[in-house]
Lab assay of single mutants.
Amino acid sequence: SEFSSRSGYGEYVQQTLQPGMRVRMLDDYEEISAGDEGEFRQSNNGIPPVQVFWQSTGRTYWVHWHMLEILGP
């Protein structure tokens, strides 16, 4: 990996993601499973900070930056 740390990767995702971009989950996290795909909606200063609309659940759920792989527009 070109990223030395999880936080470095998270910063990359945070700087790159734009609303509407497709993402894939890298880790299991509460209701969301690794491999689930969705659409980035928004972020804020909460914890976790990233709101994604997940195809698997049909609704939005908040996750962490480093848990997401960017699939593209």
Rank of each mutant, 00 (worst) to 15 (best):
46 G>F: 11
45 N>I: 09
66 H>L: 03
24 R>H: 03
7 S>V: 06
53 F>R: 14
3 F>P: 08
29 Y>Q: 02
8 G>K: 11
46 G>P: 01
63 V>P: 06
37 E>K: 00
20 G>D: 02
57 T>V: 13
68 L>I: 12
34 A>M: 14
1 S>D: 15
11 E>K: 11
28 D>C: 05
34 A>G: 04
59 R>S: 14
39 E>D: 08
73 P>R: 12
14 Q>V: 08
26 L>I: 09
42 Q>P: 08
42 Q>W: 04
39 E>G: 00
67 M>A: 05
60 T>V: 11
11 E>G: 11
19 P>D: 07
51 Q>W: 03
39 E>R: 01
42 Q>D: 10
44 N>I: 08
64 H>Q: 12
2 E>Y: 15
57 T>G: 09
14 Q>A: 12
15 Q>A: 12
64 H>N: 06
22 R>C: 03
64 H>V: 08
52 V>D: 02
60 T>N: 15
61 Y>Q: 14
24 R>K: 03
60 T>L: 14
44 N>R: 15
18 Q>H: 10
12 Y>S: 11
72 G>D: 12
13 V>L: 11
28 D>W: 00
15 Q>W: 04
28 D>V: 00
72 G>I: 02
71 L>E: 06
55 Q>F: 13
5 S>R: 11
57 T>S: 10
51 Q>I: 02
61 Y>N: 10
42 Q>Y: 05
19 P>Q: 09
13 V>G: 04
48 P>A: 13
64 H>I: 04
16 T>I: 08
40 F>M: 05
18 Q>S: 09
30 E>L: 06
72 G>Y: 09
25 M>R: 02
12 Y>N: 10
48 P>S: 06
47 I>C: 15
31 E>G: 05
48 P>H: 01
26 L>F: 07
65 W>C: 02
14 Q>L: 01
36 D>N: 04
17 L>K: 00
15 Q>M: 12
53 F>L: 14
22 R>W: 11
18 Q>G: 07
38 G>F: 00
70 I>Q: 01
14 Q>T: 12
55 Q>I: 15
8 G>Q: 15
25 M>Q: 06
41 R>T: 05
42 Q>F: 04
17 L>T: 01
46 G>W: 11
52 V>I: 13
35 G>K: 03
46 G>V: 15
8 G>A: 15
52 V>S: 02
6 R>K: 12
66 H>E: 06
36 D>T: 05
67 M>R: 01
14 Q>P: 01
46 G>C: 15
63 V>K: 07
53 F>G: 03
45 N>H: 13
3 F>S: 14
23 V>T: 05
